[in-house]
Amino acid sequence: MRILLTGASGFVGCAVLGRLLADGRHQIRSSYRSIPKDVPEDVEVCVVPEIGEDTDWSGVLRGVTTIVHCAARVHVMNESEADPLSAFRRVNVQGTLQLARQAANSGVRRFIFISSIKVNGEATLPNAPFAATDRPAPIDPYGVSKMEAEQQLRELSSATGMEVVIIRPTLVYGPGVKANFLSMMRWLDKGVPLPLGSIDNRRSLVALDNLVSLIVTCVDHPAAANETFLVSDGEDLSTSELLRRMALALGKPARLLPVPVWLLEATAALLGKRAFSKRLCGSLQVDIGKTRTLLNWNPPLGVDEALSKVAKHYMETQAK
Rank of each mutant, 00 (worst) to 15 (best):
T133W: 06
T133S: 14
T133P: 00
D134I: 03
D134T: 07
D134A: 00
R135I: 09
P136T: 08
P136W: 08
A137R: 11
P138L: 07
I139Y: 14
I139W: 07
I139Q: 15
I139M: 15
D140W: 01
D140I: 00
D140N: 09
D140L: 05
Y142L: 04
G143T: 15
G143K: 12
V144S: 05
S145G: 07
S145K: 11
S145E: 10
K146C: 09
K146V: 12
M147H: 15
M147D: 14
E148S: 11
E148N: 07
A149N: 12
A149M: 11
A149K: 07
E150I: 05
E150Q: 13
Q151K: 13
Q151M: 12
Q152H: 10
Q152W: 07
Q152E: 14
L153R: 06
R154L: 11
R154Y: 13
R154H: 15
E155G: 09
L156T: 08
S157L: 06
S157K: 07
S158E: 14
S158V: 11
S158L: 13
A159M: 12
A159I: 05
A159E: 11
T160I: 04
G161I: 02
G161Q: 01
M162E: 01
M162L: 00
E163T: 01
E163Y: 07
V164N: 04
V164C: 00
V164Q: 00
I166M: 03
I166N: 02
I166V: 14
I166L: 01
I166G: 02
I166R: 01
I166S: 00
I167M: 03
I167W: 01
I167Q: 01
R168D: 04
R168Y: 00
R168W: 06
R168N: 15
R168F: 08
P169K: 06
T170I: 02
T170S: 13
T170G: 03
L171T: 06
V172F: 00
V172D: 00
V172Q: 02
V172G: 03
Y173W: 03
Y173I: 03
G174L: 11
G174H: 09
G174Q: 08
G174R: 11
P175T: 03
P175Q: 02
P175E: 04
G176A: 05
V177M: 07
V177L: 05
V177D: 14
K178Q: 12
K178E: 11
K178M: 11
K178N: 12
A179M: 01
A179K: 04
A179C: 05
N180P: 06
N180W: 10
N180H: 12
F181I: 09
F181Q: 02
M184N: 10
M184P: 09
W187Y: 13
W187L: 10
W187K: 10
L188T: 08
L188Q: 06
L188W: 10
L188V: 10
D189G: 09
D189C: 09
D189M: 13
D189N: 15
D189W: 14
D189R: 12
D189L: 13
K190T: 12
K190W: 14
G191P: 07
G191V: 02
G191C: 07
G191N: 05
V192D: 00
V192A: 10
V192Q: 10
V192E: 02
V192P: 04
V192W: 05
P193G: 08
P193R: 08
L194E: 07
L194P: 02
P195I: 01
L196K: 03
L196C: 02
L196F: 12
